[in-house]
Design a binder for these strands. Structure first.
Length: 264
DNA sequence: CATCATGTTATAAT
DNA sequence: CATTATAACATGAT
């Protein structure tokens, strides 16, 4: 479920544990979410530390702990973070629990497409420093977006918007929203977009990212009904702009939803 | 029982 | 090598 703003919201859910000493770490080393992670190092390292600060970048989260310990979390499709009152007993899909005196910081993920990694570094881990500019950054420029569209000229716009190397944080509903507001069909090949259309994609990527952080990221409020977002999964959902029945079809392996009348 | 799911990545194919 | 297509991952909802 989580895209840019949802990830931002989830990251804040652990704030209740800030500055609280971690007294126990519960994890299941063989779970898929720990692939490539040294779980015993993670376990031993976090004991006795406390959470200093949560960072997010696109769909990536990074939790900074005292003693130069870092926990990178990706929520995949079904991951979530929550804080529970102690004493807390982990459930079936609670793969990592950081226990403090009052609050348990819980990572839950039924499908386990999410991932957890551990780093011990003086500053931000290398992978974090190399992440591409976010849509809300100054460095996310119209020129950069235009170049990306040209470089991947044969990729449908919808698929390109989902590419985290260029549009970090954009997921399925945001990509559909951007294309709907830009009045561009999801199948349009990136290289076939005009200069103005590329600029619209750039502008709306920024606008929708910023607005969803303000609205969903703040307290998980609904975006305006004038957006496509609230209509795209309803059966028989209609375009909020013209009332036409919305269409759904697979584009590059993911479901796209669009208005066949507005988006041409 | 079959299909689908707001994500990523390894591997195959071009 | 660069780019693109497909399958796979693990589980729950419909």
């Amino acid at each position: 479920m989580p895209e840019l703003a949802e990830v931002f919201w989830y990251a804040k859910q652990w704030d209740a544990g800030q500055g609280r000493r971690i007294r126990a770490v519960d994890l299941h080393p063989r779970k898929r979410v720990f692939r490539g992670c040294d779980t015993s190092a993670l376990h031993d390292a976090l004991l006795g530390t406390s959470l200093k600060k949560a960072h997010t970048h696109g769909k990536q989260m990074l939790f900074e702990f005292t003693g130069s310990h870092w926990l990178a979390v990706h929520l995949g499709m079904t991951g979530s973070l929550e804080t529970k009152r102690e004493p807390f007993e982990p459930g079936k899909h609670d793969h990592l629990v950081l226990h403090t005196r009052e609050a348990a910081l819980v990572f839950e993920d039924p499908r386990q497409f999410g991932a957890i990694r551990y780093y011990h570094d003086k500053g931000f881990p290398d992978f974090w420093k190399k992440l591409p500019p976010q849509p809300t950054d100054k460095a996310f420029t119209a020129v950069l977006v235009a170049k990306t569209l040209n470089r991947h000229a044969r990729v449908p716009l919808k698929a390109l918007l989902l590419d985290q190397r260029y549009f970090p944080g954009i997921g399925n509903w945001m990509a559909d929203e951007i294309l709907w507001q830009a009045k561009l069909p999801p199948h349009l090949l990136s290289g076939d977009a005009t200069g103005k259309q590329a600029r619209d994609v750039w502008r709306l990527t920024q606008k929708i990212s910023a607005a969803s952080l303000r609205i969903i990221g703040k307290d998980w409020s609904d975006p305006p009904k004038s957006w496509l977002m609230l209509h795209r999964w309803e059966d028989g959902g209609k375009c909020p702009r013209c009332g036409t029945l919305l269409k759904r079809e697979t584009v590059r392996g993911r479901t796209a939803c669009w208005c066949p009348k507005c988006q041409k």
